[in-house]
Amino acid sequence: MWLFSLLLMSGIMSGCASNNAEERAEENNPANVSDPRDPFESVNREMWTFNWEYLDAYLIRPVTVGYVTVMPQFARTGLLNAANNLEEPANFANNLLQGDFDQGMDSLARFLINSTVGLLGTIDVASKVGIERQRESFGETLAVWGVETGPFLMLPGLGPSDPRSFTGRVADGYTYPNTVINGTYSIAAFAVSLLEARASLIDQEQQLENSFDQYNFVKNAYFQNLEFRVTDGEVGRQAVDTEQQQEDFAEFESLLDDEGEE
Rank of each mutant, 00 (worst) to 15 (best):
Arg135Thr: 11
Gln245Lys: 12
Ala239Met: 13
Phe138Ile: 01
Phe166Lys: 15
Thr149Asp: 15
Gln204Tyr: 07
Asp35Lys: 14
Leu142Cys: 01
Thr116Glu: 04
Ala221Pro: 02
Thr77Tyr: 00
Pro156His: 14
Leu97Ser: 02
Ser127Arg: 09
Thr242Asn: 07
Gly130His: 01
Pro36Phe: 03
Val117Asn: 09
Leu59Pro: 09
Asn182Met: 08
Gln206Lys: 11
Pro160Leu: 10
Ser186Val: 00
Thr231Ile: 08
Leu119Asn: 12
Met47Ala: 11
Gly139Phe: 02
Glu53Pro: 05
Arg24Gly: 05
Leu7His: 10
Pro89Gln: 07
Ala21Tyr: 13
Gly157Ser: 14
Glu88Ile: 08
Gly150Ala: 10
Ala250Met: 10
Asp203His: 07
Asn95Thr: 06
Asn81Glu: 00
Trp145Pro: 05
Asn84Gln: 05
Ala93Thr: 10
Asn85Tyr: 04
Gly118Ser: 08
Ile123Cys: 06
Pro62Tyr: 04
Ser186Leu: 14
Ser200His: 11
Leu119Phe: 14
Val125Cys: 03
Trp48Arg: 10
Phe217Asp: 02
Asn178Leu: 15
Asn19Pro: 06
Tyr58Ile: 00
Tyr58Leu: 07
Gln245Trp: 00
Ala191Gly: 02
Leu3Arg: 11
Ala31Thr: 07
Leu255Trp: 14
Thr122Val: 11
Glu53Asn: 13
Gly168Glu: 07
Ser137Ile: 07
Asn114Ile: 05
Asp124Phe: 02
Glu53Thr: 06
Glu23Ser: 14
Pro62Gln: 04
Leu112Met: 15
Gln207Thr: 01
Gly99Met: 08
Leu226Ile: 11
Glu22Cys: 04
Phe138Ser: 03
Asp100Val: 03
Asp232Lys: 14
Leu86Met: 15
Ile187Lys: 13
Asn32Pro: 07
Ala25Cys: 11
Gly66Glu: 09
Ala189Cys: 10
Met71Phe: 03
Gly139Ser: 01
Met47Tyr: 12
Gly104His: 08
Ser10Val: 09
Asp124Ile: 03
Ala31Ile: 00
Arg45Gly: 03
Leu8Arg: 14
Lys128His: 05
Gly78Gln: 06
Ala82Gln: 07
Val170Leu: 15
Ser10Glu: 08
Glu46Pro: 02
Thr141Met: 04
Thr141Ala: 02
Leu208Cys: 05
Tyr54Thr: 12
Gly173Phe: 01
Asp213Cys: 01
Phe138Met: 08
Ala57Pro: 01
Arg45Gln: 13
Phe4Asp: 14
Leu201Pro: 01
Glu234His: 05
Gly260Met: 13
Ala83Asn: 01
